[in-house]
Design a protein around this nucleic acid. Sequence first.
DNA 1: GGAACAAACTTGACGCTTCAAGTATAACAT
DNA 2: ATGTTATACTTGAAGCGTCAAGTTTGTTCC
Lengths: 157, 157
Amino acid sequence: MEWLTDEQQAAWRPFIALLGRLPAALDAQLQRDAGITNFDYLVLSGLSEAPSRTLRMSELAAIANSSLSRLSHVVTRLEAKGWVRREPCPGDGRFINAVLTDEGWQKVLATAPGHVSAVRELLVDVLTKEEFEQLGAISARVLAAQGIKVAIPNAGG
Amino acid sequence: MEWLTDEQQAAWRPFIALLGRLPAALDAQLQRDAGITNFDYLVLSGLSEAPSRTLRMSELAAIANSSLSRLSHVVTRLEAKGWVRREPCPGDGRFINAVLTDEGWQKVLATAPGHVSAVRELLVDVLTKEEFEQLGAISARVLAAQGIKVAIPNAGG
DNA sequence: GGAACAAACTTGACGCTTCAAGTATAACAT
DNA sequence: ATGTTATACTTGAAGCGTCAAGTTTGTTCC
């Protein structure tokens, strides 16, 4: 085998540190201010942007970068809090629609500003416009290599 | 408040997807081939690179981007597997040294090649040299804004 | 149209992470 | 020298994620 070159390590180390720390920092803000996890937020905000605030479990799992199993557990918790409800899909009994309730919508509205601020403070505002775009492009490329395409709203895609 | 612009979202979405998926992919390889988590590996390899394969718990926590609590639990498990042992520090009774055992060293040797291959396949090889360096520089910058400095071996730092 | 297969989702158990609290040692103040 | 505060770490419980199985509903293929 061959470990990474010094140059590669100089890039790898900061990146893996970021991978470890940024999610923790984002989670900390959401937990403190809204009592939810980053993943909860991803699920709620994913639903909030969908037509009729409704998505099939499997679609929602793709948006939240999650296994169905994980999503199922989380939706059970979110349902218990009254933010989401499940509805069987009339056409095909295998599908389950997750629907954001009005209370869930209110939760998203209440939570978004603080979360957006955290994203800005931790990431967006410490980078130049070009750097942030590069970060996005690089991320998209890594995901594309795994066959994953990320949906971007308002991007004609 | 103000949500992100379309341009910013076009960068943010792929990035957060990467944040969700890459650790899972790395964990999957390590779990399958070595029965350990990414975090376990970070701890073991961190020790393997330290002088005398020994680090104080708090230093190791910094290297592994972890809380002391999390590290303490993990070291307990790694100790049970015979890969790490704890030693009180003679000079200052508050410090505890974590020491990589010979078995732990062997585990690192056995695990590293597969892990490195995964890192290459998932990340390094799908990017150009320039992109990978940019990714490292951007990561370092984001961390620096939090006051975090990442140690790079063989970099005169 | 009935049996085999597949797809979508759920469930339970186990392991890991986090949080709050606790212990033990050292440094500091008076 | 003694009480106070700070540092380094541990511990237990509660919550979350993962994995392997299980359930239910559709599809396919003679």
